[in-house]
């Protein structure tokens, strides 16, 4: 019944020669909104990057803490992000410009398109990054800590946006805001303090607990 987009079996994760987590198995299906949690240094970013490397071009990852460089409008930023779709001068095709318009409207940031990105809130800028993934026709969007450093209002707004996008794509986001994350997630990936990867669709709270305690 479910459209499986990415299927991972028995993956071992490590960073800089140090093993982090082994026996990682999961499926990412169309419509999933997956919260990835774990302590700092547990391998969340490493896992997201591993998924990006294994998956095809239709998987897009938005890293955390992108600098808001002054001197670009929101629209220009989204256009720049579509690096592989633009020509030598950075111009997009008419069709892509139209899907850019659609993406901005869908994320409710179309009224900000001519604003300099340095004047945007972190939440609005995060949505611009998500918009670029939509323009790039991503079937899976990986977000590394999209809610980090956001105030409560922006955090909720970004998470709701992620949930809304899930109809047509799958989303995996890593976060430390477990409570807010759980409210929108349909699935949880947790890297436990025991170094074991767990995946849950039901009893998500219990799965989340494993990142704090040895079970």
């Amino acid at each position: 019944m479910k459209d499986t987009l990415i299927n991972v079996r028995d993956l071992a994760l490590g960073h800089g020669g140090k093993p982090l987590c082994s026996g990682v198995s999961f499926e990412i299906c169309k419509g999933d909104c997956i919260m990835l949690c774990g302590a700092n240094g547990s391998g969340k970013t490493t896992l997201l990057k591993a998924i990006l490397t294994m998956a095809g071009e239709e998987t897009v990852m938005i890293p955390t803490r992108i600098p808001k460089v002054a001197g670009f409008t929101l629209r220009e930023f989204v256009r720049i992000s579509c690096f592989t779709r633009s020509d030598l001068g950075g111009r997009l095709s008419d069709a892509d410009e139209m899907s850019l318009d659609a993406a901005l409207r869908r994320l409710s940031i179309d009224h900000l398109e001519d604003r300099d990105i340095s004047t945007l809130s972190d939440g609005e800028f995060q949505k611009a990054g998500i918009a670029s993934a939509v323009v790039r026709k991503a079937s899976v969007i990986l977000l590394d800590e999209p809610t980090a450093f956001l105030d409560a209002e922006n955090r909720i707004s970004v998470l709701r946006t992620l949930r809304e996008l899930c109809g047509t794509t799958a989303i995996v986001f890593s976060t430390h805001d477990l409570h807010d994350g759980l409210s929108v997630a349909t699935k949880v990936f947790a890297i436990g303090s025991d170094g074991i990867f767990r995946c849950a669709e039901e009893d998500m709270d219990k799965c989340v607990e494993t990142i704090f305690h040895k079970v």
Binding site: L52, P63, P67, S81, C82, F83, T84
Partner: peptide
């Protein structure tokens, strides 16, 4: 020029954008 634009947003971001 478009590469110089995207590199302003960080190596990681640029790499992930292709």
């Amino acid at each position: 020029r478009k590469g110089l634009d995207i590199i302003l947003f960080g190596d990681e971001f640029a790499q992930m954008a292709g």
